[in-house]
Amino acid sequence: MSEETHEPVPYRTFIMIWVALIILTGITVGVAQFDFGAVNIWIALSVASFKSALVLFVFMHLRQESMLFKIGLLAMLVILVIFIGFTFTDVLYREVLP
C-alpha cells in the first residue's frame, strides 16, 4: 500500500451531511407516530441503513479510500447476511418458539 494523501473534504460537505442526518432522524421519529403495522420497522430500518451509508461514505471517508476498503465492507455485510439469515431459517420454522 503506497502513501496516498487525500484531499481534505470541505467543511460544507460535512455540515450538509449532518443536516441530512438530522432531517432523516426527524423522519424516523415522525413515521413512528403512525401505526402502519409491520411496515413501521422496515421504514425505520431503511432510513437507518441510508443514514449509515452517509456516515460510512462521507464522515468515515470511505468514498476516498481504495477498492480494498469497499470490498472489506461488502464482505462484512455478506457475513452479516449469512449470520442473520441462517439464524432465521432456524428460528422462523420452529414449531414452538424458544
Binding site: 424516523t28 401505526d35 430500518l45 449509515s52
Partner: peptide, 23 residues
Amino acid sequence: SALYWHLVDLVWIFLFPLYYLII
C-alpha cells in the same frame, strides 16, 4: 479515533429506532 467514534454513532443509528420507536 474518528473512525471508532463514527462506529459508536452507527450503532446508535440502529439502536434508537429499534428500542425507542416500536409501536
